[in-house]
Computed example of a mutant assay.
Amino acid sequence: MTTATLGAGRPRSLGRVPGLRYAITPIALCGVLLALYAWLGAQNLDSIESRSLTREVLFAKAVEHIQMTLVATALVVVIAIPLGIVASRARNRLITPVILTVANLGQAIPCIGLLVLCTFLLGVGFQTALVGLVAYAVLPVLRNTMVGVQQVDPALIEAARGMGMTRGQILRRVELKLAVPAILAGLRTALVLTVGVATLGAFVAAGGFGELIINGLKLNRMPVTIAGAVLTASIAFFIDWLGGLAENLLKPRGI
């Protein structure tokens, strides 16, 4: 019996089945959401719980939560990637500690405390929540951009110089391209962090699933709290899954 015949009868592992490992997370999330729907349907909901868990309310809260997450992440990309590039340059070593210290403050200060301080300056609303979310999510993207650029092999940079590339061309065509996996990993982390922290936006009237969680706790309506928590976690897992897909699709070939 040949080796090919022996291997033909062996079951393929999940990691080797094309596309199957990417389908596990969406399938699991669909199962969780169906279980939540069935559980809520089996509860004897009162009028307050019923009004809080209508399709219209859940859809509106989902839109608010995702909007906060995406807008904050877009601002983080605009702020953190350029700062990470600046901090990665050897000639900027004097200001690099300052950049990292400011970025670390965003996670060192409790987000709820930062939101309260911003409320005195900006009032309540969407923009106040964005300040807290951006401050909290800048560090992973900034640090990963910095590390990704610094880890590029110096021999590749010298080769690019030998081909006549300018500093800007080397940065765009060599350093940033090779740093893409690290940058995407930082962005994936920032997205998941932002989904969780966005629940605090309810304290400044920014909406999102945080309102369900907080209102459920205040009114002692556990179905409302559980629904808000499960839906928030589901969005976080789904965004993490999308981030994993993006890392595999956008990373340069051969890395």
Rank of each mutant, 00 (worst) to 15 (best):
Q151M: 12
G164Q: 04
Q127K: 09
A137I: 13
A182W: 07
R172I: 08
T166Y: 15
R167D: 12
G132D: 09
G164A: 02
T194Y: 02
V134L: 10
L130M: 11
G123P: 02
Q169N: 10
T96W: 08
T101N: 08
C111E: 09
C111L: 11
R188A: 01
A182D: 08
E175T: 07
V141T: 11
D153E: 15
T119M: 14
R172Q: 09
A135I: 08
G186Y: 00
T166N: 15
P154G: 02
G164M: 04
V124C: 09
E175H: 01
G196H: 00
E158W: 03
G186A: 03
V195Y: 00
L130R: 03
R161G: 09
Q150R: 14
Q107T: 14
V195M: 01
V134F: 06
R143I: 15
V180A: 04
R188N: 14
V131L: 13
L133I: 13
R161P: 00
A185N: 11
V180Y: 04
A182Y: 08
I109Y: 03
L94E: 12
N104T: 10
L156E: 09
V116E: 15
G162D: 10
G164C: 03
M146G: 04
T166D: 15
M163V: 02
L178P: 06
R167A: 13
Q107L: 13
L139C: 04
L117M: 14
L171Q: 10
R93Q: 12
G113T: 11
V147Y: 05
T119W: 04
V141L: 09
V116S: 15
L200W: 06
R161I: 04
I183Y: 05
A108I: 10
G168L: 11
V134H: 02
T119L: 14
G168H: 05
L187T: 12
L121K: 02
Y136F: 15
A198C: 01
R143T: 15
T145R: 01
L178Y: 10
V102D: 06
A159F: 11
G106I: 07
R161F: 02
R161Q: 14
V124H: 08
L191C: 06
V102I: 12
I112C: 07
L200V: 01
T194K: 01
T166W: 14
